[in-house]
C-alpha cells in the first residue's frame, strides 16, 4: 500500500468517525437545545401528590421546555413531596407563579407546568413556588365522579 494512500484512508476513517459522533450529538441528541449545564438556577415546589413524576422530567411554561426536574424528595416536616427544579438562567418567573403537574397526552410522561402570574418581583435562586397543584390521580377522579353521580341520583329520586 502506498504511503500517501494509507494516510488518506486513515484520515477519511477518523474524520468519518468524528463526523458520525458530531451528527449523533447535534441531530440525534439534544446538544443544540437548551444547555442545562452551569447556566441554571434552582427553584423548589411542594406538591401534595406528584403522581408519576420522575427526576429529569421537563419543566415547561407555555409548552416550551424551560428546565428539568433535578430531584424529588419527601418533606418530612410537611408530609408532602419536595421537588427541586433546575430552570434555565434565561427565564425568570414572577413570585406568584403556579406550578402544576401535568401529563402530555392521555398516557404520556408527566411534566411540571409553570403558569406565570402578575407579580412584578421575580423568583430568585433557591426560592420556593408557593402555589402548586398536584398531579391528577385517576382513581380519585373516578371516585369523585361516582360520588357525584350517586348524589345526583339521590336528588332525582326525591
Amino acid at each position: 500500500m502506498e504511503r500517501s494512500a494509507l494516510d488518506l484512508w486513515v484520515g477519511l476513517f477518523v474524520c468519518a468517525g468524528l463526523g458520525a459522533l458530531l451528527i449523533l450529538a447535534m441531530k440525534v441528541g439534544n446538544m443544540t437545545s437548551i444547555g442545562l449545564g452551569n447556566h441554571t438556577y434552582i427553584l423548589y415546589a411542594n406538591f401534595d401528590n406528584i403522581g408519576g413524576l420522575k427526576a429529569r422530567a421537563p419543566v415547561k411554561s407555555a409548552g416550551v421546555v424551560v428546565g428539568r426536574v433535578a430531584s424529588i424528595g419527601f418533606d418530612n416536616a410537611r408530609y408532602n413531596a419536595r421537588v427541586e427544579l433546575s430552570i434555565d438562567d434565561r427565564y425568570k418567573f414572577p413570585k406568584d407563579t403556579t406550578a402544576s403537574i401535568l401529563t402530555s397526552g392521555l398516557l404520556g410522561e408527566q411534566y411540571v407546568g409553570l403558569d406565570a402570574g402578575g407579580d412584578s418581583v421575580n423568583l430568585g435562586p433557591g426560592e420556593a413556588i408557593k402555589l402548586t397543584q398536584s398531579a391528577v390521580v385517576l382513581e380519585k377522579l373516578i371516585s369523585q365522579f361516582l360520588y357525584s353521580k350517586a348524589a345526583e341520583g339521590d336528588t332525582a329520586k326525591k
Binding site: 476513517f13 477518523v14 468519518a16 468517525g17 468524528l18 458520525a20 459522533l21 451528527i23 449523533l24
Partner: peptide, 8 residues
C-alpha cells in the same frame, strides 16, 4: 469511531 459510525 466504528461504534459511532454504526449508530449513525
Amino acid at each position: 469511531l466504528l461504534a459511532a459510525l454504526f449508530s449513525a
